[in-house]
Nucleic acid binder design. Sequence first.
DNA 1: CAACGGACCTGCCTGC
DNA 2: TGCAGGCAGGTCCGTT
Length: 256
Amino acid sequence: PFLRGRKLDGAVVRQSRLRWPVPADLDSLVCGRRVRAVGRRGKYLLIELAEGSLILHLGMSGSLRVLPSATPPGRHDHLDLLLAGGRCLRLHDPRRFGSVLWQAGPAAAHPLLAALGPEPLEPGFDGGHLHDLAHGRRVAVKPFLMDAKIVVGVGNIYANEALHRAGIHPGRAAGRISAARYALLAAAVRKVLAEAIATGGTTLRDYTGSDGEPGWFRLQLQVYGREGAACRTCATPLRAARLGQRATVWCPRCQR
DNA sequence: CAACGGACCTGCCTGC
DNA sequence: TGCAGGCAGGTCCGTT
């Protein structure tokens, strides 16, 4: 809401080597243009200007803050979008897995957004969708669920949690799960995400919301980060392994 | 086509 | 105390 309707006076790029190079002419691209709308698609943030769009991704470690433009930049403060009136939107990203891209015209035309699956909290995502796309797939269901072409927004933590709630083993082949169980999984994904959003997200170390407050969903995690501990449902020790290079935790009794 | 590993980075923790 | 190694919230891309 802070950005909508505001005019940009330009951009200051201090580090252009993010996941992809920040456009060299970003300053002139945004200068003098007004923010028409701010949106989101998957984990991409969309700042729609007249005649073009900024597409931002925070990666694993990125954050945005509104500050007076005169605030001295700290380490890893890679970029400022200058707002008319003396403030700026500052991107901080220690790991530099984030990105800042420009798309002429509407953001939806960008190739990175074109092939994304449905939003998990909107119509178009349900058990039937998952069951259809899983047909014939031998990939494990957890990486399948984390594939943005299948559904966006399900990262490692929430994939682990949703599979536990749905009683599905994370290593089960995606194509060997019934439509009924996919209906349970889709419902679990929606529920986990809705609850996490309601509690401000999952703070592991330093994540905070835009209000500076941590999120409290960590207190409700059933499996993520609990390997070896007792399943909160059946007390069986939780097991862990790496699946698709990601930490995976499950209950060998509750999840089949 | 599907599946997999590698790549992009820094910071923090553990264990030697 | 220092240092190497492994791991972390993401996700694209090239190679099999």
